[in-house]
Simulated scan of single mutants.
Amino acid sequence: MTVRELTRELVSIPSHENETAAGNDIEEWLRRETDADVTRDDAGNVLARKGTGDETLALVGHHDVVDPTASQVRRADDGAVEYVLEERDGRLYGRGAADMKGAVAAAMLAFRDADPAGELVFASFVGEEVGGVGARHAIERGFDPDYAVVGEGSTGYSSPGVTDVAVAHKGRRGSTITARGTAAHASEVDAGENAIYRATDAVDCVRDLEPPSVEAAGERLEGSLVVTEIEGGTAMNVVPDRCELTVDERTVPGERAELERVENLEGVEWTVDQDLPPMRCDDEAFAETVLEAAASAQSGTPELVTKPHATDAGWLAEAGTECVICGAAEPGEAHTEDESVSLEVLERCRETYQRVAESWPA
């Protein structure tokens, strides 16, 4: 089976509401095509292991996808939802082609064909698109490879068409600032405490904070901090007793903006709603090995780069795994109405993964 055929098979299986069918397909393929120890945990993650050694390398992906658009689905005669697949100009179009069933297919084939230098693990997680549910579940139950190549997109970062190796990415912390006051009739302003005024004081505090940054891959990985929503008040003639703000913070490895400072303001509370960890690879030898494998698999010259958004590599790195990201998706492809992936680049990824598996641990 080729990477094209396997990608088409995986992408055709709906997995935006329930990943079970896609997980079944991956599990059955691994059991049929390999002699590996294949398991399925109670979250739905599919794991396979082969080879032996003191250190473990994992090829990591996820088989859940975001909701498809109307043009990406059709109804079968029995009423079931099917994903629309199109292939043209060397690219496969369909929900999940880029993010990231194509890279999962490449990793499956590399896992099957590799004669690994150490213990080799394949892992396809559920729930990446909703906060890393599957990765967190696996980590909590002992999934702890020494190294991992995560197949999220790294193509087209240094130059168009080149598959790079990302050694760091930002995280995301989403939080809510709640300002409380005392309601009063708007004709008696001094009888109340205006929660919106307290909230605007919190906004000023956020604007004064310096987003953190760190050095990674020879460049500055810059965090960011922005107020994204505000809601407060009940009527035009009432001094509001409550106002809420949401804050989107892009975090960097080892650093956070000091958002807790807003709680020094009277009547203001701060709550973290989501905290997706950033990632940075601190093992230069591992990063260079993956870079060399990627260079050998293509005519272009890949570079070590950084990514702007969070992936399951963040959860793995937080747990102690040295991670890099290498995958076929290009900036602007994931989650789009015309999501697609280059079949040539998928074959490149398959070759890269196999080369890494056969050379690392060194």
Rank of each mutant, 00 (worst) to 15 (best):
residue 271 T to M: 04
residue 353 Y to K: 00
residue 108 M to D: 10
residue 195 A to G: 09
residue 64 D to I: 04
residue 88 R to H: 11
residue 161 G to F: 12
residue 126 V to P: 06
residue 56 T to R: 14
residue 250 R to I: 10
residue 61 G to K: 05
residue 128 E to L: 01
residue 202 A to F: 05
residue 45 N to Q: 10
residue 334 A to Y: 04
residue 8 R to K: 14
residue 196 I to P: 04
residue 56 T to F: 01
residue 216 A to T: 02
residue 178 T to Q: 02
residue 359 S to V: 06
residue 272 V to D: 01
residue 322 E to M: 06
residue 239 V to W: 04
residue 220 R to D: 14
residue 355 R to K: 11
residue 202 A to Y: 05
residue 264 N to K: 14
residue 325 I to H: 01
residue 200 T to Q: 13
residue 187 S to Q: 07
residue 15 S to A: 14
residue 188 E to I: 12
residue 243 C to F: 03
residue 289 T to C: 13
residue 33 E to I: 01
residue 298 Q to N: 12
residue 72 Q to T: 01
residue 199 A to V: 10
residue 93 Y to E: 06
residue 283 D to Q: 06
residue 64 D to C: 07
residue 74 R to I: 01
residue 105 A to R: 06
residue 285 A to R: 13
residue 79 G to F: 05
residue 131 G to Y: 04
residue 277 P to E: 07
residue 103 A to R: 03
residue 301 T to W: 04
residue 349 C to H: 08
residue 138 A to V: 11
residue 121 V to L: 12
residue 135 A to W: 06
residue 124 S to F: 06
residue 98 A to W: 01
residue 55 E to R: 15
residue 128 E to Y: 03
residue 309 H to L: 12
residue 353 Y to N: 00
residue 272 V to R: 08
residue 169 H to K: 08
residue 203 V to K: 00
residue 128 E to H: 00
residue 248 D to R: 07
residue 341 V to G: 04
residue 254 G to W: 10
residue 355 R to W: 01
residue 118 G to D: 04
residue 183 A to Q: 15
residue 55 E to H: 13
residue 357 A to E: 07
residue 38 V to D: 11
residue 205 C to R: 15
residue 160 P to K: 13
residue 311 T to I: 02
residue 254 G to M: 02
residue 20 T to N: 09
residue 127 G to R: 03
residue 270 W to S: 02
residue 212 P to Q: 06
residue 355 R to P: 03
residue 341 V to R: 04
residue 356 V to L: 09
residue 274 Q to H: 12
residue 109 L to T: 04
residue 243 C to T: 14
residue 314 G to H: 09
residue 301 T to M: 05
residue 115 D to S: 15
residue 276 L to R: 14
residue 94 G to Q: 08
residue 83 Y to Q: 14
residue 196 I to G: 01
residue 226 V to D: 11
residue 1 M to N: 08
residue 148 A to L: 10
residue 341 V to T: 13
residue 310 A to C: 09
residue 357 A to L: 04
residue 9 E to V: 05
residue 193 E to F: 02
residue 315 W to D: 13
residue 256 R to T: 11
residue 152 E to D: 12
residue 347 E to N: 12
residue 293 A to E: 12
residue 354 Q to D: 03
residue 270 W to R: 14
residue 66 V to F: 00
residue 202 A to W: 02
residue 127 G to H: 10
residue 170 K to P: 06
residue 63 H to G: 02
